[in-house]
Design a protein around this nucleic acid. Structure first.
Lengths: 129, 129
DNA sequence: CTTTTTGCAAATCGTTTGCATGGAC
DNA sequence: GTCCATGCAAACGATTTGCAAAAAG
């Protein structure tokens, strides 16, 4: 239904997101895009970030500190979340074995725990639909 | 510093949490404990759940739908999050290989994606402290 | 001209916090 | 008597939403 129409704001948001690997919050995206579009509103940023996530052109990363993060890198990869400063950092490796290796190498001792969250539809919902 | 004092409310919260594997939200815990303590407040439930999480007697699970979930099972394990109904289900296996096996067996095709989030302190914060 | 997108402000929702009172020790 | 914990209500912070105006097609 929704015929997508072009918008400079959305383009600027995509562009900024693609230019960084810092996994910015919606507010950070807002502040950056604002330099180019002084009148842009936070609501527009949220709407577009969610739209991009729905289209599969961006990924929304849920963090334990409330604020969600956005990532233009849609190829599946893992993230390291710093519980002290809240920064989200890319990590790339393929299996659990490497997690422990990484913990004792790249992040010697700094990894305190990790969470694996799966996304999908549970059997109950599958039945109901 | 904080000398922990006994409280019936906290005990009831621990008890309820230990009795279920449904990974309830704070509000769900609130509603259940309320049958035993009609005057208990949501704030107290939040305070105690966070306290238990800090003490390591419970785990707080961040989900993409906003509401955090709590789990009395503190032995590290993985969770499956249903993006349709928001339920959180325990999954147990040890490595990434099994994730794909599981996706095609127990959850045939239902797992759409998964996120691994690491918790710890990043190098920058480690340096600053 | 029709439909989508925007900017703005108000509304929502989960969670936290300040404060006076009540309970634990 | 001294602190810690509670109940309540107000405060918060991130995100969403309703609406009229502006832009795209």
């Amino acid at each position: 239904m929704a015929t997508l129409k072009y918008s400079r704001q959305r383009e600027a948001i995509k562009e900024y997101l693609a230019s960084t690997t810092s996994h910015p919050t919606a507010d950070t995206v807002y502040m950056h895009v604002k330099t180019e579009f002084p009148n842009i509103s936070l609501g527009t940023v949220y709407r577009n970030l969610n739209l991009l996530a729905d289209l599969g052109e961006a990924v929304k990363i849920t963090t334990p500190d409330g604020g969600d993060r956005f990532d233009a890198q849609t190829i599946p990869h893992y993230h390291f979340y710093c519980k002290d400063c809240g920064s989200v950092i890319d990590m790339d490796f393929n299996n659990i074995e490497e997690i422990n290796e990484l913990a004792s190498q790249n992040f010697d001792g700094r990894i305190e725990s990790h969470t694996i969250l799966f996304y999908g539809t549970c059997g109950e919902c599958l039945t109901r639909s």
